[in-house]
């Protein structure tokens, strides 16, 4: 009797102990939101909703609006997804269906290693290698051929929105393609064989069977990549150019929320300046929270659908 009781108490304590550590993660998560909200009060009270739609960023007169960094974040993320989605789908298709079996593991590992390279290395590479390449060859070429479009006008500086978008593309390809490959591999073999048996070509099997079957998983993968791109700091800070103006040109320098924080946070003097930066961080956290939640929900559902 005594023995039995001790055993049960041990298990109760063990369960409580592990549960308290688990709740630590939830506490940190909630504390991030609460602390950022609390500390951005001076800015929220001074600017209110206009913070989100104002274009001025003037530390001297303490007038702050987040529109330019928000626009920069959204634009670079959009560019990255524009390039990364087709490329990642191609890579995933190659890894799941086309590549000979002996090639799949090494090739897949190589793509996943792209995700392991620290973001600051991408940023540095973008600044010293990709930037000059853009300025000397790519941007003059785009201007010569498509220069009548306002998005390809302006001077070729090498750094700017387009270059930031390209570096982000490289960074999110491994995330989207490895998750999409896993989604493709989950498609039941009989389903594919049935389609092949009807005389479908590989592309038709992919388009009409594999993509519809895995659409939730693919959507989850894309949103996961999007969440990464929105919050990426170092890679963008190097190449975006850090300028506060909004332009139609993709060659123009700009700013993202994360690069603004990286550049100005330690230099911020004055309560309003600092709390405006904190509010920017809060906005970024909430945007990525929504995107990543959608990613989780879709990935869970596609996993549940498989079981």
């Amino acid at each position: 009797m005594n023995m039995k009781k001790r055993k049960i108490w041990g298990d109760v304590i063990f369960r409580g102990l592990t549960a308290s550590f688990a709740s630590g993660i939830a506490v940190i998560f909630i504390a991030i939101i609460v602390v950022l909200w609390h500390q951005s009060q001076p800015s929220i009270q001074k600017f209110g909703f206009s913070f989100l739609v104002s274009m001025s960023w003037n530390p001297v007169h303490e007038q702050f609006g987040a529109l330019i960094p928000i626009a920069g974040t959204l634009l670079t993320t959009f560019l990255a997804l524009l390039f990364a989605i087709p490329l990642s789908l191609g890579i995933a298709l190659f890894l799941a269906e086309l590549a000979p079996h002996w090639l799949r593991t090494p090739f897949g590992t190589a793509i996943e290693l792209l995700a392991a390279i620290p973001s600051i290395v991408y940023g540095m590479w973008g600044l010293f290698v990709l930037g000059p390449l853009m300025a000397d060859y790519v941007q003059p070429f785009l201007k010569a051929t498509l220069g009548f479009l306002p998005i390809f006008s302006g001077s070729s500086m090498g750094i700017g929105m387009l270059t930031a978008g390209l570096v982000l593309t490289l960074m999110i390809i491994p995330f989207i393609s490895s998750v999409t490959r896993d989604v493709f591999l989950m498609v039941p073999q009989p389903l594919k064989e049935a389609a092949y048996g009807l005389g479908c070509t590989t592309w038709e099997v992919v388009r009409d069977v594999m993509i519809p079957y895995g659409r939730k998983g693919i959507a989850g993968a894309v949103f996961l990549g999007m969440g990464r791109a929105l919050g990426e700091t170092m890679a963008v800070t190097f190449v975006i150019g850090n300028a506060y103006h909004l332009s139609w040109s993709l060659f123009a320098p700009g700013n993202s929320i994360a690069s603004t924080l990286a550049n100005e946070f330690t230099e911020a003097d004055g309560q309003v300046y600092l709390s405006s930066l904190i509010e920017l961080g809060l906005v970024l956290f909430l945007i990525t929270l929504i995107i990543l939640s959608l990613a989780q929900i879709w990935l869970r559902r596609s996993a549940a659908g498989r079981a």
């Binding site: 549960a19 998560f29 991030i32 950022l36 946070f265 961080g281 990525t288 939640s293 989780q296």
Partner: peptide, 28 residues
């Protein structure tokens, strides 16, 4: 429910912008 919530939050924190973590630690 608690398990699902912690798992969900952990998955989000894995991909959350690390600069915001920096801001948070600066503040606390």
């Amino acid at each position: 429910i608690f398990g699902h919530f912690v798992r969900f939050v952990a998955d989000i924190l894995v991909s959350a912008p690390s600069i915001v973590i920096g801001v948070f630690v600066y503040l606390i």
